[in-house]
Design a protein around this nucleic acid. Structure first.
Length: 440
DNA sequence: TCTGGGGTCCTAGACCTT
DNA sequence: TCTGAAGGTCTAGGACCC
């Protein structure tokens, strides 16, 4: 999908179509998640600090991500892909590999081009968004082709032309070559894919190590035998938070680690998993990052056990100077727990009260008062009299709302007190108007 | 106003067991 | 009992991806 998050926001907000839209964390330490092509003209790109983006594009619309909406649209697209083939490998919310041959959706270049063209039309009809398609004989080449196809295009790499096409491209084109590897290769005088092939496998292994060296050499020769894998097992589950201001208070650091452990376990349990290795991540005031881990005797999904392990790990970390990020993760995953094994060992013992997920949930927090409610920029709202709209901005006790829907024209703007009783948060509307629904 | 969040994979050293 | 090789596991960190 092209500039996915930003495109979704433009589709749901008529006033933003054709405008620079930047989606990301709006806090003092936020970064750009995605931006529209109109914003890229100003030099804004993914992973750029938000402050820098604001300097480059001060008049752009700045929105916080709405992952639930993006997930639901992603699911619509994935369904279309699965109609083409049972072998669909999602890479992220907005990207996936499809083995067209396995689904008998294509058998040669022409049938592949036809399938790709139809798919793009279907994505457009179902979601209202544009997607780009890369067609090639391997995952690496398909990925390169889809990058070339963006935005809103289709690129097919004809069989037999792969090596010639790759040769002049920069090493950064190859997946797995980031800034560090790119630099490493450049210092060795290698800047193009052709030069990787010329350097030879032994030299690549000497420069980059066994795994990376062999893999990169093969890719430079356009060799990529990796199959499309539909089901991938989760290897780890983690949560992390970056704080607007560094935390210096050791007690507060401990409290935050406890909270993160709790959140992490909730995610773990929601996936029906448990894990053996607990990982604590600390990013200090100077951006130095360290991890500490502890492997338990058996997998657990007990929030108290994870929190205790995380607290023990924290004891071994010097946080003087302050921390800007804390994270807690669990790896070594299993779909049973040590407690299950004990229960199994207990055999026919009398039935015990269930120790399932619900018993460990924290007590529900009291609902915030209207004045404390947050009005995140870009989120949908409903006004009792004026209808559906979205938050254009808030602050100083006021919230500004633009009243428009994905199917309306550009809407009008009104400002309300943040505790206006007629204003409430609303669910996002579908991007394509459901058939038979009266216009809004 | 410098640098998010959630992942995967690889490497390398320490340590333990066979 | 000592020694060394080999292999597995644990741990920490780096790189990369979207």
């Amino acid at each position: 999908m092209d500039a996915f998050f930003a495109s979704v926001e433009q589709a749901s907000k008529p006033s933003l179509r054709g405008k620079a839209v930047i989606v990301g964390g709006l806090g003092p330490r936020g970064v750009v998640a995605t931006c529209s092509y109109e914003a890229r003209v100003f030099g804004v790109h993914s992973a750029m600090p938000m402050g820098q983006a604001r300097r480059l594009a001060p008049h752009a619309a700045y929105l916080v991500p709405r992952f639930e909406l993006y997930r639901s649209i992603s699911e619509q697209v994935m369904r279309l892909l699965r109609e083409l083939s049972p072998l669909v490998e999602p890479l992220s919310l907005d990207e996936a590999f499809v083995d067209l041959e396995a689904g008998r959706a294509a058998w040669d270049a022409e049938s592949a081009r036809l399938a790709g063209t139809r798919l793009r039309a279907d994505i457009r009809a179902v979601t209202g968004l544009t997607g780009s398609v890369g067609l090639a004989a391997s995952k690496m080449l398909a990925k390169i082709a889809s990058e070339e196809a963006k935005p809103d295009g289709l690129v097919l790499i004809p069989p037999g032309t792969e090596r010639a096409m790759l040769e002049p491209m920069t090493v950064r084109t190859l997946p797995g070559v980031g800034p560090a590897t790119g630099d490493h290769l450049r210092r060795a005088g290698i800047t193009t894919v052709g030069e990787i092939a010329e350097a030879g496998e032994d030299e690549l292994v000497r420069l980059l190590g066994k795994a990376h060296g062999h893999a990169l050499y093969a890719m430079a020769l356009a060799r990529d035998e990796r199959p499309v894998v539909a089901e991938r097992e989760t290897k780890s589950v983690s949560v992390e938070d970056t704080y607007d201001v560094d935390i210096h208070d050791r007690v507060r650091v401990g409290v935050e680690v406890g909270r993160l452990a709790d959140r992490c376990v909730r995610r773990l349990r929601a996936s029906g998993l448990s894990g053996r290795t607990i990982v604590l991540k600390v990013r200090r005031y100077d951006f130095s990052t360290l991890t500490r881990s502890e492997t338990l005797r058996g997998p657990t999904d007990d929030p108290a056990v994870v929190a205790e392990a995380a607290a023990r790990l924290l004891d071994s970390v010097d946080t003087t100077g302050g921390v800007r990020l804390l994270g807690v993760g669990v790896s070594g995953l299993a779909d049973y727990t040590q407690e299950d094994l004990f229960a199994q060992a207990a055999g026919d013992r009398a039935e015990e009260p269930d120790q399932g997920p619900e018993t460990a949930e924290p007590v529900a927090e009291p609902a915030p008062s209207p004045a404390e409610r947050r009005w995140p920029a870009g989120h949908d709202v409903r006004h009792a009299r004026l209808g559906h709209g979205w938050v254009q901005g808030s602050g100083l006790g006021r919230v500004t709302v633009r009243f428009e829907t994905p199917y309306s024209g550009v809407g009008r703007v009104r400002t309300f007190p943040v505790d206006d009783p007629e204003l409430s948060p609303a669910e996002p509307l579908p991007l394509v108007e459901p058939v038979g629904r009266p216009g809004g």
